[in-house]
Structures are given as C-alpha cells and as structure tokens.
Amino acid sequence: MTAVQQPTPMSDAAQESVGVPARPTFRARAGHGASAFLRRAAKILAIVVVLLLLWKLVTVVFGIRDFLLPPPEQVLEEMWANAAVLWGHTLVTAQEVVVGFLIAAVLGLGCAILMTASQLVARLFYPALVISQAIPKVAIAPLLVVWLGFGQPTIITIVVIIAFFPVAVSGAGGLREVPRDLVMLGNSMGLRGARLFRKIMIPYALGAIFSGLKVGMTLALIGAVVGEFVTGQSGLGYYIQSSSSAFNVAQSFGGIIAIVVLGLVAFKLVELAESLAMPWRREHSAFTASA
C-alpha cells in the first residue's frame, strides 16, 4: 500500500457531468483501459470515414475520371476481390520490414553504446554519423542491386541501412545526455562498464532510444517499398508498381492503403514496446498522452 495520493478515480462519465476537464490527470493503471481503447478505435474509424467521404466528394465534384483517381468504393471493391493476393504481398513486405528493422535496431544500439563507451570510437564516428543523416540513403538502392543482385536479401539490406541511422544517432544522443553526476553516483557505488550501462545509462536513455526506434521503423517501411520498386518480385512496392504500369490505378491504391495500415501497425508495435519497457512513464507522467 502506498500513501501516494491518487486523485479520486472518477469514471469518465462522472468527470464530464461535473465539468471537470478529463486531462491532465494521473491515470490509474487498469482504470478505464478498455473504454479508452474503444474511444480511440471510434475516433480512428471516424477519421477514416471522413477521409473516404472527402475522397468521394473530390472525385464527384471535380468529375475526375476513374483511371486517374478511382472513387473509394471501387478501390475497396478491388481490394476485396484481390484480398488473398494483397495479403500475400503485405506479408512479404512486413517480413522485410521486421527482419530489417530488428537487425538495424541491434546494430544501431550496439553502435550507440560503443560510441558512448569509447571516446576514440565517438571521435571517429559520431560526426560522420550526424552528417550521414543528411544523405538520402535510398539513393544507393540501385547500387546495392548491382552489388548484391536481385531479391529479398538486397531489400533487407536497404531496410537495415536506412533504419540504422536514426536508431544509432538518437541512441548515442540519449546516452550522452546522462548527467555526469549520475555516472559518478554509479561509479561511487562500484558500477563500471557493462553494469553501469545496464543499471543506469540505458534505462536513462530509453526515451531517446525509443524515439530513434520509431523513426527507424517508419523509415524501414519506406526502405522496403523502395527496395521492392527497384528489385522486388513480390511485396507491396512491387504490387503498386506493376499495377501502375498496367494502368490499374484502383489496384495501386489498394496497395497504398495496405502500406498505410502496415505502417500504422508497425509504429504502434514500437509504441507498445516502449510503454512495456518504461512502465514508470506510463503510470506516473502527469500528462498521459491524450488518445
């Protein structure tokens, strides 16, 4: 039992009826988890419906012809008809993204730790790493095809290269921001090297690490699609490209929608990992992110 004062847990309905602003609030862990989820789902659904209506409106008002921008119902119909094929391509892309992202995360974090642990490594690589942010990594995709040939290994390599940098840069930045006194505290208790990283530095830098992972995940999907544009025999990038070259615009749009959904799911997975890795943030931040 803690003596910490939690504001009286009111139900959302009660809060609204009394006119108390719902946020900021200390949110209890289990609390209104389920209802919050439903509310969020409803919100997303509403946004989707509005977007589809807008889309429909544009095609009607401006009289855009089907082979340029098909109306939404035609795209959805197409997706439904091709569901199995579309799903197959989605899985291919998802696999490239996940494998590439995981490799990039491990390499990126390892590199960040090395750059923090060793002055020498930092002096050699940190400036180069920061500058490399400005270089569009997708530009080397065609070169990679020359070096590595066609196929999934090449695509995964592109994903790794593109997702590695934000992870390494944010991670190294976060680890550098650990206050000097905190490191000294660790030293005074006998913590050095790997144990210092495990007990103090890495937990302290988790926020920065996860913001790098989120950017990395977004870029991983871009890398996979670009890779499929260049060399794919399957996957959503390939699907969109081959549909477009056949002037099947409705099918292309189906592929784009699948990419958007895949991107959202991937991003949410990283967010979920973040809240699992940092439960103290979830429970104790005064301003819980409003859904």
Binding site: M184, L185, M189, G190, R195, P203
Partner: peptide
C-alpha cells in the same frame, strides 16, 4: 557519497533506489 542533487532513478521505486547501493556492490 551523497551528491548535491538527489539523483534518484525515476524507473525505480523508493526502496529499490535505496537498494541500488547494495545491488551495485
């Protein structure tokens, strides 16, 4: 050593912050 700032680790409970000293050693 007691530092000028309290330097508690925000991801550990109060008790576990105190016991960090023991764990580290």
């Amino acid at each position: 050593v007691a530092f000028q700032d309290s330097l508690l680790l925000e991801w550990r409970s109060v008790l576990r912050n105190v016991l960090l000293q023991i764990e580290s050693r």
